[in-house]
Amino acid sequence: MTVQSSSLRRFFRGSQVGLFVVIGLLILLFVIGVSVSDRFATSRNILNVYEQSTGLALVSLGQTLAILTGGIDLSVGSIISLSSMLTSGLINGNPSMVLPVIAGVLLIGIVIGAINGGIITVTGVHPLIVTLGTGAILQGITLLYGLGPTGKVPRGFDYFAYGRLPAGFSVGATFALVVFLLAAFLLRNTRTGRHIYAVGDDPHAATLMGLPTRRVIMLVYILSGFFASLTAIYLVSRFGVGQPYTGANYTLSSITPVVVGGTMLAGGRGGVLGTLLGVYLVSLLNNLLNFLDVSTHFQLVAQGLVIIAAVSLYVEKRRIA
């Protein structure tokens, strides 16, 4: 019980710090935006920022869970690329194939995640190396399937990416928001949720306490694979076709919102709400830089500086062996 209550304390401490930093940065960006352009604070622009956050939000959610256990999932980019190719390649314009293919692709994400988790728990190799390896294998398989954009999707498939609910809220972004809130609730209020924190906090202690460490690790990589495949379906909905490198940038960019949101790479501290705000921060930053008419080249510099600024504010717990 002591492990659980201490990890709970850390959870609140950690996530509060994270939330304050991100909220502070969000307000700062907003103020700058308002002073730069009249069009910035319009509901139209803000809804735009919201819509554009969808893909990053979905993939970062799974990444957050992997990082909370002290791991990392560097295969998400390849899972996205493979899933996007399979989605449009297998549907190939046939409306009756849409539902079976979506179910199949999500299942593939789950299976890949289970393979990641299985290798990690069985061999004891660091998740960084394991997922780097499976990521390379999956990218190779993707390129064996097709070297260019493959297949097509029927009319209406773009509803997930471009559909709007009443008041103009994006369908995809709202779906992501609901999933995040649900995940935050489950992390706080279920036994498995607390186990994720305990395993990340100290896997040794968690095992000694009798927690199902291996099962928890399997679970987070399965969820990470599932959300990567879901991101792929969103991207196919948005671009209309799957592409063999469409996920490549997501591997590293899915980590930015997680760490900016206050989740520690060492595991055990942070939470998904910080990540959600981190996603909105990245989305708002890119939007603001467009308004500032900054060359796209400097957008990268700004992203790097935001990461440095944010992580310098948090202090990773020192692990003394």
Partner: peptide, 18 residues
């Protein structure tokens, strides 16, 4: 600053690229 090596060098990678 006790930043994890992964993040510190990732951020420098992005800054240099930009």
């Amino acid at each position: 600053r006790n930043v994890s090596p992964f993040l510190a060098t990732l951020a420098m990678m992005i800054v240099l690229q930009g």
